[in-house]
Design a protein around this nucleic acid. Structure first.
Length: 635
DNA sequence: TACAGGTTGTCCTA
DNA sequence: TAGGACAACCTGTA
């Protein structure tokens, strides 16, 4: 083994130089060689492949980081290597005589499994692994320990755990120099084909399987199409030039500039109250738009936190406080990360999750593909509603505007997410929150698995939040925030000239009003069929009626009181408990659901309902089932 | 057991 | 524009 340290610094989702405890740890080794590498991780590659916007943002971050590294050492850059880290790193260990591997910890279920593999390989190769926590304010595992090993399900739990763990570390400065990279021989590393083929894994959804075909050409070389380790272009990834439609650009440089701009407006930063920011504001948005940078690690949450505190200290007046303040937003992020750290893969799904309520939603995930994008179409109407929701053709202008902004820009305001999420689940369609989470996962620039799952659970009232009778109206909420309809006009140009009195409920417009606006309300032509120019669909249901049905359905589900780790959820028989209630969500006569036999059969054949999880389910089920029994007796 | 509080509802009344 | 009803959930504290 070499006497001096020869270090691989492995960038994953920490694409920055400032406040990187892991990078600092690497430099503290005073290495003879330091290779800053970014591996192509098929798990993430295939998840984002359908979303050119996210690719663009990632490439922005990589390019910016590469330039910053070169500025610190002209011989160095970000070396992008196109192979799964599980197979690549062990080969590099020996080919490059590596002594240390350094990276930032990641608590996603997939990342934990991957890193366990890497750690074992490093141990076999005699390579020392150094990791640090830098993705969150506190180390999520430390928060879990401080919360008695349980997931943090409320803000007060998170804050109490945070107090126990200790003060949030101040941000570290960016390094002023970097060691040379060593020689990077690949002769004995490189195979001839399929470096980036995905390893066998069921640890997370493969959202973009339909995009995978035809994407393999041109990446046979470990060091990229040009053989120079360069960051690829969108074209090299197989996207059309105009595929990325978002105006939002990535990179640490942009992130730090944007942070400066936000904090320069001391009054804005110090009095920020999230619930009072407008979901209809655009150019500029009412919030900071820093979340995509946090996701890709181009901005440190600790730097953001301490800069926000600094703004409060400079403000002459009463600053806002958590949970509504800017710092409060970061605390919520840590709450979801710590919940995920305790729950593991179950965080992203209902089945097996002790914290998530069972609700017999439409379009449930196929149990044998837990966490995947495969689901059971239990009701054709629900499937059509889901497709219309995802495409922004529901006939509710507010919902459609938000979904179109999401698809085009990759970002919508938090309250907009509330609005469309409530609409899809407990406040309209009664469709499984996992379907909505899948769509957000594909389209959001700032998609963070823990926060996405947690927020969908929150909005569907299956965890974190339970006041299901508070329901967002696609009309009233729109009228509150988009009084004149400017937001709808931007994203639903069909309604551009419609009077503001009816812009959020065009079904109430008179024939003359529609004629004057140059728009015709038409029956939805069908999933996959383009709307004719100058037409807009009739609303896909009566919202007030659907709200009543959904609230009744949630009431029933709360009475039944099952959670995702209950026997009946694990074996697929939970649905039976809703059979004697007539329609499981209290739907009207003549609207009964299609057969659920397929769902039940699929669930029953699930291989993984082990005895240990069953025992755990029994143990936990006592409370909810007691409650159910009591209610039954009272009746 | 009672009660207050919970980042971000809606609708009607005064 | 403010305040209460709506119908009623959870957690945390005393």
């Amino acid at each position: 083994m070499a006497s001096k340290a020869r270090v691989i610094y492995w960038f994953r989702t920490d694409l920055r130089l400032h406040d990187s405890p892991a990078l600092q740890a690497a430099l503290d080794l005073q290495p003879e060689c330091l290779w800053p590498i970014f591996t192509w991780d098929p798990h993430y590659v295939y998840r984002v492949q359908g979303a050119a916007n996210r690719w663009q943002f990632l490439l922005d971050c990589q390019n910016d980081l590469s330039a910053s590294i070169t500025a610190l050492n002209p011989a160095s850059r970000l070396f992008v290597l196109r192979e799964a880290p599980q197979t690549l790193l062990p080969k590099l260990f020996s080919a490059w005589n590596v002594t240390h591997l350094v990276f930032e910890r990641d608590t996603d279920a997939y990342a934990r499994a991957r890193d366990a593999t890497i750690l074992a390989a490093a141990a076999r190769a005699g390579v020392t692994v150094v990791t640090r926590s830098g993705r969150t304010l506190w180390d999520p595992d430390a928060l879990v320990r401080a919360n008695a090993g349980k997931p943090t399900m409320t803000m007060s739990q998170l804050q109490a755990a945070g107090r126990k763990v200790g003060p949030i570390p101040p941000p570290l400065p960016a390094p002023t120099s970097l060691p040379d990279p060593g020689a990077m021989p690949l002769e004995h590393v490189e195979d001839t084909h399929h470096h980036h083929h995905p390893p066998e894994t069921t640890a997370g959804p493969d959202l973009n399987a339909r995009w995978r075909e035809g994407q393999d050409a041109g990446y046979a070389r470990l060091a990229g199409p040009q053989g120079d380790f360069a960051v690829e272009t969108l074209a090299e990834l197989g996207f059309a030039p105009a595929a990325a439609t978002t105006p939002h650009r990535g990179g640490e440089t942009v992130a730090l500039q944007r942070l400066d701009t936000v904090m320069a407006d001391v009054a804005y930063a110090a009095t920020f109250r999230k619930p009072q920011t407008s979901p209809a504001a655009f150019a500029p948005a009412s919030t900071t738009l820093l979340s995509p940078f946090l996701h890709f690690g181009a901005l440190s949450p600790r730097l953001f936190y301490h800069r926000a505190l600094e703004a409060c200290s400079r403000f002459r007046g009463a600053p806002s406080a958590p949970p509504e303040s800017l710092t409060g937003q970061l605390l919520f992020r840590d709450m979801y990360f710590a919940a995920q750290a305790a729950l593991g893969a179950a965080m992203a799904q209902t089945v097996g999750n002790p914290q998530v309520r069972y609700v017999p939603w439409h379009l449930p995930s196929k149990v044998e593909y837990v966490g995947g994008a495969s689901y059971t179409i239990d009701h054709p109407q629900a499937e059509e509603w889901f497709q219309r929701w995802a495409a922004g053709t529901t006939g509710f202008p507010w919902i459609d505007a938000l979904m179109r902004q999401l698809r085009h820009d990759g970002w919508i305001h938090h309250l907009g997410r509330h609005s469309v999420a409530c609409f899809l689940t407990r406040g309209g369609c009664y469709i499984h929150w996992e379907r909505g989470a899948d769509v957000f996962a594909e389209l959001l620039l700032d998609h963070e698995p823990a926060c996405n799952s947690g927020n969908w659970q929150w909005l569907s009232c299956t965890a974190f939040f339970s006041q299901y009778y508070r329901c967002y109206s696609p009309v009233a909420f729109a009228q509150k925030w988009d009084r004149d309809g400017a937001f709808v006009r931007k994203w639903v140009p069909e309604l551009q000239r419609l009077d503001k009195k009816v812009i959020h409920e065009p079904w109430k417009a008179s024939p003359a009003e529609l004629r004057n606006a140059g728009v015709a309300l038409v029956d939805f032509p069908g999933v996959g069929v383009d709307m004719a120019p100058g037409t807009y669909p009739v609303r896909m249901f009566d919202f007030d009626e659907r709200r009543r049905i959904c609230i009744a359905g949630l009431k029933k589900a709360y009475e039944v009181g099952l959670h995702g780790d209950h026997d009946k959820v694990l074996d697929g028989t939970a649905l039976d408990l809703f059979a004697d209630a007539g329609e499981r969500e209290g739907e009207m006569e003549g609207q009964e659901l299609g057969s659920n036999a397929a769902t039940a059969a699929a669930a029953a054949s699930r291989p993984g309902s082990s005895s240990s999880s069953t025992a755990k389910a029994k143990k936990r089920a006592t409370g909810p089932m007691d409650r159910y029994a009591k209610k039954q007796k009272v009746r």
